[in-house]
């Protein structure tokens, strides 16, 4: 385990799930749920004779940022790509469920609680979705997580943090899209179909998954920020993600609905304007969209320092 102060300046991209979880909340405030000492490992990996992890590749718990209780779910890409199986899925579901119950308890027993004393949920995604070794249970767990995300609405905000190596793809790409707020670093990637699968489906001339620039332009933080799929684009250190969470924690809980991209009839109508634009433009590259929304030099936009990018970038307004 790392020293908390040292963690703050560590790269979110390079940090493992536990370090991210610990670093996001105040020093010494984190209580882990169903942690490694509980040894709830995947029985299905064992059946297949595969190595197990004592936390099944996801760290769950509660900590604090200032006065705010923060429920944390942090996925570990180093363990089978951060994939979700029965145990890890149950930990995610249980954590969101616990957060909803806790928020309801505070609403009932502490009617005068300050906004920043009410809980939030932070999910640090690093996953391609379903764990194939226990694919059916993993798929069913995804549906349960989505159900809990909908149940959380109006009770406790759910914030996605995306800035880890594996990105956030597959069924968990749906889940991240469905949360209230999406925070990314420029190294974060968010989507449904990973680059290798697109190449396999459409051919290398259409999408070369080895072209890192192309991969990041299509699903990376800068692009998703331009598209509005990412609400906040932060620096790549753990401290930057933590600072953004701290800012969000102070907001009136009713304000979180304004960050949503989907989840109401009106938002669906708004997103359909984007789909109509996609049909009209038939973009060959994400840069086509960047130019369309008013960024004259997309190559420069992709490579300039992040601080400059945030100042000059024009974003899609639907």
């Amino acid at each position: 385990m790392s020293n908390w102060s040292a963690l703050q300046n560590r790269s979110f991209l390079e940090s493992n799930a536990r370090d991210r979880a610990l670093g996001l909340v105040d020093e010494g405030s984190f209580t882990e749920f169903v942690g490694p000492f509980d040894r709830r490992t995947s029985p299905h990996l064992e059946t297949l004779g595969e190595a197990v992890e004592f936390d099944d590749g996801v760290v769950t718990g509660i900590g604090k940022i200032g006065k705010t209780p923060v429920f944390v779910i942090s996925q570990e890409g180093r363990f089978i790509g951060g994939s979700v199986g029965e145990v890890g899925g149950a930990k995610m579901v249980g954590t969101i469920k616990a957060a909803i119950a806790f928020a309801k308890r505070i609403a009932k027993d502490f009617p005068n609680a300050e906004e920043d004393e009410k809980p939030i949920i932070a999910i640090s995604f690093e996953t391609g979705g379903v764990r194939l070794h226990e694919a059916n249970a993993g798929l069913l767990a995804h549906a349960e997580v989505m159900d809990q995300v909908q149940r959380a609405r109006g009770h406790v905000p759910v914030v996605s943090l995306i800035g880890s190596k594996v990105g956030c793809f597959g069924g968990m790409g749906f889940v991240a899209a469905a949360t209230d707020v999406v925070v990314m670093s420029e190294f974060g990637r968010l989507g449904l179909t990973g680059p290798e699968v697109i190449e396999q489906e459409m051919g290398k001339e259409e999408f070369d998954s080895a072209d890192r620039g192309l991969v990041y332009r299509t699903t990376g933080g800068r692009h998703k920020y331009i598209m509005g799929d990412c609400n906040f684009l932060v620096d790549p250190e753990i401290a930057a993600f933590r600072a953004q969470l701290a800012e969000l924690a102070k907001l009136p809980r009713a304000k979180f609905a304004e960050f949503r991209r989907i989840g109401t009839s009106e938002l669906v109508e708004k997103q359909l304007k984007g789909v109509a634009l996609a049909a009209k433009m038939q973009p060959k590259d994400a840069r086509d969209v960047w130019v369309h929304v008013g960024n004259s030099d997309p190559v420069e936009l992709g490579s300039m320092p992040l601080a400059d990018f945030r100042k000059v970038v024009k974003r899609l307004a639907l």
């Binding site: 989507g191 598209m227 799929d229 984007g274 973009p283």
Partner: peptide
């Protein structure tokens, strides 16, 4: 599973 779909956010539509 397309490039346009990823650029505009297939995950968002199904979400």
């Amino acid at each position: 599973p397309g490039k346009t779909e990823e650029i505009f956010g297939m995950n968002k539509a199904t979400g």
